[in-house]
Design a protein around this nucleic acid. Structure first.
Length: 206
DNA sequence: TATGCGATATTCT
DNA sequence: GAATATCGCATAG
């Protein structure tokens, strides 16, 4: 466990959604739970900018999406399909309602616990996809609204090495604004979910 | 490897 | 009542 991850400084994180989604590729996400540290390299994100019809803020503020309206750098966690939690980073100044979805991690630390939670020892499958990512890290609604720059249990770290080329594509699993190129991933990285070459949404693929 | 489908809960119309 | 920022299993090729 000689891995030393330096915390990201708040002023390094862009407060504009697409810029943040791109910036976060190659950075690290760290969870501290009861003395155990889990971490991973962020290899895939999606941007849900202000006014986006596919975003959770589109139908206005409600109890379900309150934390989306916090200042950038807070966590926004919600449940989808009744089964999976999605971990987002609020991406604009307070009151706006936009976020970056963390889709996939390359596991670094706490792999044993991730395997246990996920019921597999296949490294590639531990946190590939947003539902798996949350499951591996034990993220649920209790993490909703926490500040990633003051809370000790969930925070963002600097890159641990060189960051590869970043590719953009259409977002996965949405119907509205489906043509937008707001998905970002590290090219060629096997820990990325979904299409890694075509860059086109299945709906628009021939 | 690719495609299809059911599971499941909360929110919104 | 319908939709949903998904996943794992089944089946076919």
């Amino acid at each position: 466990m000689g891995l030393h991850i330096r915390p990201l400084k708040r002023e390094e994180l862009p407060s504009e959604t697409q810029a943040m989604a791109r910036f976060l590729i190659g950075r690290t996400l760290v969870v501290e739970q009861g003395g155990v540290r889990l971490s991973g390299r962020i290899v895939e994100t999606e941007a849900y900018p202000p006014g986006d019809a596919a975003g959770r803020a589109f139908s206005g503020k409600s109890a379900a999406n309150e934390s989306l309206y916090l200042d950038y750098g807070h966590a926004f966690v919600y449940l989808i399909y009744g089964l999976y939690h999605m971990l987002n980073v609020v991406s604009e100044p307070a009151g706006i309602g936009a976020a970056v979805l963390l889709r996939s991690l390359e596991p670094l630390e706490g792999i044993r616990l991730m395997e246990e939670r996920r019921g597999t020892d296949r490294l590639r499958d531990l946190a590939r996809g947003p539902g798996r990512l949350a499951a591996a890290l034990g993220i649920d609604r209790r993490y909703d609204g926490i500040d990633l720059f003051s809370d000790k249990s969930l925070w963002l770290g600097r890159e641990t090495g060189p960051v590869g080329e970043i590719t953009v594509s259409t977002r996965i699993g949405i119907t509205r604004e489906a043509y937008r190129l707001w998905r970002y991933y590290e090219a060629g990285n096997p820990f990325v979910s979904g299409p890694r070459s075509s860059g086109l949404h299945p709906r628009y693929r021939e």
